[in-house]
Design a protein around this nucleic acid. Structure first.
Length: 214
DNA sequence: AAGCAAGTCCTTCCCGTCAT
DNA sequence: ATGACGGGAAGGACTTGCTT
């Protein structure tokens, strides 16, 4: 069984033990894993069971996976009893998403806000301008700015930058890619601009973060 | 030599404000 | 909800210096 700790998946994949198999990891580790191990199918689900290889996304997903296995081997009633003992109200299904929905994360149902953030999160490497986002939403740039200020207390540009820098932070922590490479992958045109923005956001230089993680 | 950080200068574009 | 406008922040290009 693979642990919820993603390093286990990385080690086993590096050893070739997951070739041709389906696994899952914590959503923050997925991009790096997929890039390094193209021969392994990594999906974003709570857990995966493929030919005696058990993997889960970590956290409570391990409990969900255990309950599913008990239900398969010993029946649903026993799994339910154990779930109640664990004060785990119900076992979530395997295909359930790891991350909370955008509506939950943003704390707003505003369709302009939710769709704008979804566009931002799907265009990290080649960021869209505020005008382009507004055009795709059928709203004016001014309207998009107002919605962000009302619900998030910041400008669209500031939120977009935060998303890209958090992605960069995750890549620096979990991959061996160069800082320059990561800067480009997160939509910064130069490492100088990236470094400046990164230090402003996290109060630590990209290279210092990598050194600290070793 | 390569990678990274920091500084400078100029340009672009975003943001806040106000009016409609 | 939208448009106009001015100011300021961020980006782009380039250079220099430091570290490995």
């Amino acid at each position: 069984m693979l642990g919820g700790i993603d390093t286990g998946c990385f080690s086993l994949a590096a050893a070739g033990l997951l070739d041709g198999r389906v696994v899952t990891l914590h959503w923050e580790s997925l991009p790096v894993f997929r890039e390094r191990f193209a021969q392994v199918t990594a999906v974003e689900s709570l857990y995966e069971i493929d030919a005696r290889r058990f993997s889960c996304a970590g956290g409570m997903a391990a409990t969900d996976m255990m309950l599913a296995d008990i239900a398969t081997r010993h029946g649903g009633p026993l799994a339910t009893q154990i779930a109640e003992q664990l004060i785990h109200d119900r076992a979530r299904i395997m295909a359930g998403g790891q991350r909370r929905s955008l509506v939950e994360r943003l704390g707003s149902h505003d369709p302009v806000l939710v769709r704008a953030v979804a566009l931002m999160e799907s265009h990290i490497e080649a960021p869209l301008s505020l005008t382009a986002i507004a055009q795709r939403l059928g709203r004016s740039p001014r309207r998009v700015q107002t919605v962000f200020a009302q619900h998030l207390g910041c400008s669209p540009g500031a939120w977009y930058r935060k998303i890209r820098l958090e992605q960069a932070h995750a890549l620096i922590s979990a991959s061996e890619r160069s800082i320059t490479d990561i800067a480009m992958a997160c939509g910064f045109v130069s490492v100088a601009v990236f470094s400046r923005a990164f230090k402003r956001q996290f109060a630590i230089a990209p290279s210092a973060l990598r050194s600290a993680g070793k």
